[in-house]
Amino acid sequence: MRIYNDADADLGLLKGKKIAVLGYGSQGRAQALCFRDSGLDLTIGVREGKSFDKAKEDGFPPVSISEATDGADIVMMLIPDEAQADIYEKEIKDHLKPGCALEFAHGFAITYGLIHPPKDVDVIMMAPKGPGPMIRRVFENGYGVPALICVHHDHTGNAKALALALAKAMNCTKPGVFEARFEQETMTDLFGEQAVLCGGYTAMIKMAYDTLVSRGFPPEMAYFEVLHETKLVTDLVVERGINGMWNSVSNTAEFGGLTRRNRVITEKTRDGMESILDDIQSGKFAEEWVEDYRNGLKRMRGLQQKDADEDIEEVGRWVRQTFFGGKE
């Protein structure tokens, strides 16, 4: 896989370009602030509400999404995935000028055919690998997070160069940028979230907590052991790799982990992961997610509330406030 760095990207390609940043949530705000610091000409397009007010606080004069899109050379779709298709049809599609670039930070809407851009625009992606606040913090420290670029449609012949220029404006070319296809980014991102980062990870924590508490161990101790300390070990894995983590924990932890982990993560777990990936590749997950969004997020909110009502959440609030001055 080729890695692109500063020398491979020309920030001058963005000089004089009108850039519309649509959406001012976690990613939209972080990217807009970094772009502004890099000297780019930005217009923030956002609906009235909390994000609109936040953009004003940050010194931007926000406008409507359609107004921001009018005449823009680069239109950055930083609106939540689930809302992109509806907003595109109502407020963006008829305002795209020929030859512009339609840019995404995640390939969901393109991969699953929820948005069908016209043939006379470039369709690209520049996806910094990190949440908005971290992206901004690293940029302010003079560096950047790695990023991924994709080209779905190259009408002008300049699509890849534009994606690299946007990455450079975020300092992402300092650590490095790699290239992939839209569907690769979409499917690996969804799989990682569902099987490990947000789905598998939280399910394992909750089950371990319940196992200890049901055997009579204090809930506060269970919380520390199976939730709080996960960050400490995860940081070691990220910084040093899995083997580096083993070299940093006790011999007891290493022996116990290596000899017992396959009792928790079994071939049935692999079967579950395969089924998750099947749903992603077939489009079944996308259909379910879009349907729930259009149904008022009833299924997601119900599951979210079920999680919020569990004992581990109440114990966690007490632990964070008591020991770490946490604010909920």
Rank of each mutant, 00 (worst) to 15 (best):
D53F: 04
C172K: 02
F139N: 03
V213C: 07
P146E: 14
H228E: 13
A68S: 10
A9L: 13
T202W: 05
V21Y: 03
M126V: 15
K119N: 10
P133E: 00
I44F: 09
G28R: 11
F178P: 02
R36P: 07
R301W: 12
L42Q: 09
A167R: 03
L102E: 04
R301K: 14
A163L: 11
R2S: 00
L148E: 11
I3Y: 00
E267F: 10
K50E: 15
I115M: 04
R299M: 03
I280Y: 04
V46G: 05
G176R: 05
G16L: 13
V151A: 11
K168D: 10
T111V: 05
G99E: 08
D309E: 14
I79D: 01
N243M: 13
T322P: 03
L102N: 04
L22W: 00
D58L: 06
I115G: 02
G23S: 12
I205C: 11
C150N: 08
N262K: 09
A165K: 06
F60S: 09
G99P: 03
R36T: 13
R263T: 09
K97V: 15
L33H: 02
E67H: 00
I124F: 00
R36H: 13
E57K: 07
E67P: 03
I205E: 08
M125S: 02
M1W: 00
A109S: 15
D235H: 14
V319R: 04
I79Q: 05
V123D: 02
R47F: 11
D120S: 07
R47T: 07
R294G: 03
A161D: 15
E287D: 14
K298D: 10
A55W: 06
F217M: 12
G49V: 15
V233S: 07
F324C: 11
V46P: 03
K327C: 12
A20H: 07
L78H: 03
E183K: 10
G39F: 12
Y112H: 02
S38N: 08
I115K: 02
S26M: 12
I265M: 08
A109P: 01
I3C: 00
D81F: 07
E287M: 10
D6M: 04
E48G: 05
D86H: 04
W318S: 05
G176W: 01
I265N: 04
A101P: 00
D53H: 13
G49I: 15
I3K: 02
T234H: 09
Y293Q: 08
D278I: 00
K231T: 14
A203P: 01
G244F: 13
D53R: 12
P218H: 06
K231G: 15
G49Y: 13
T259I: 14
I44C: 06
M273H: 09
R181T: 04
L164W: 02
Y223I: 04
L148Q: 06
K56N: 01
A7C: 12
A159Q: 08
L148I: 14
I44P: 03
D8I: 03
P61Q: 13
A30H: 04
G39T: 09
A83R: 07
V196I: 11
L277I: 07
